[in-house]
């Protein structure tokens, strides 16, 4: 018989010490090489060289920064919605069809999932490039001269949808495959049309997957650096790109730190909301 949950109460003294001893290496390492640098970012955001809030006031009073922040949210929202709309039917068909279809589709998803962001970003660079196939196709259809595709908000958004679809599909699939199809059959036997059975039974049951996938994709988008920097418009940066510019080009560590803290707070807020309603440990299922 497995001891019930409260079993540690009696022997807590020695067991606590053992636990902390085992945790010591990991916690000490994370404290020195994770918490300290993270704390430094927070620290530098309010120093110049003495205590100051000017990095925040200059961020919050400048409409440029607000536009970056708003643009980042907008892009993340659009990417999340498109990724969901495209992934849901695919994940649904994988679960419904099963067999070889599911194997091949999951293989494709896994292939994309494991291929470096940089490789996939490069692929979009070729496709959307001035000498690329997409412009050639548009021109062949008479849209001449075809519009500039690369280095626009469109190109980085499109690429991010592509990059994050595998995450969304896997989040949806892991929930959908546990849904008992007898629920749907029961609904049908009780008189529901196929659409009603989907809408009233399957969709609500898959909701946790939708929430997980959307949270994951939205948060990854908020902090996305590589793809927006390489494919996006230099005039319409996202927040991570802005931080990069502040470091690399202007060596403005105070401002970069303040921007980082704001990005961090936004991210943590979303995680906190998720944690409040779902529980953080569910996110990585």
């Amino acid at each position: 018989m497995v001891p019930p949950v409260g079993s540690a109460a009696i022997k807590s003294g020695s067991s606590d010490a053992k636990a902390w001893l085992l945790l010591l290496p990991a916690l000490a390492f994370l404290a020195v090489f994770f918490l300290v640098p993270l704390g430094q970012v927070v620290f530098f955001s309010v120093m110049d060289p003495g205590f100051t809030l000017k990095h925040y006031t200059s961020f919050l009073s400048d409409s440029f920064y607000w536009r970056v922040l708003w643009g980042t949210f907008q892009t993340a929202g659009i990417v999340t919605i498109f990724a969901l709309l495209m992934s849901y039917p695919l994940a649904y068909m994988i679960v419904r069809m099963g067999g070889h279809f599911a194997t091949v589709m999951l293989l494709i998803i896994a292939m994309s999932f494991w291929t470096s962001f940089l490789v996939r970003t490069f692929a979009w660079m070729v496709i959307l490039g001035n000498n690329g196939p997409l412009r050639a196709i548009l021109e062949a259809f008479g849209w001449s001269p075809a519009p500039q595709l690369l280095f626009t908000r469109f190109s980085s958004t499109l690429a991010m949808v592509h990059l994050l679809i595998p995450f969304m599909v896997l989040a949806l699939y892991s929930v959908m495959k546990k849904i008992d199809m007898n629920f749907v059959r029961a609904a049908r036997s009780l008189g529901a049309t196929p659409f009603q059975a989907f809408h009233r039974v399957f969709l609500p049951l898959s909701a946790p997957g939708i929430v997980n996938g959307c949270t994951l994709v939205f948060i990854m988008c908020l902090g996305f650096y590589v793809t927006p920097v390489l494919l996006g418009s230099p005039r319409e940066q996202m927040i991570a790109g802005l931080i990069g510019t502040q470091i690399e080009e202007f060596l403005e560590f105070g401002e970069a730190s303040a921007t980082s803290v704001i990005l961090l707070l936004v991210t943590l807020a979303i995680f906190a909301i998720y944690n409040r309603f779902v529980g953080l440990d569910k996110l990585w299922g």
């Binding site: 994770f34 640098p37 993270l38 430094q40 970012v41 908020l222 902090g223 650096y225 991570a240 931080i243 990069g244 470091i247 560590f253 970069a256 730190s257 980082s260 803290v261 990005l263 961090l264 991210t267």
Partner: peptide, 8 residues
């Protein structure tokens, strides 16, 4: 976010 850690 990784960019925040990159700065740190």
């Amino acid at each position: 976010p990784h960019i925040v850690m990159a700065l740190g």
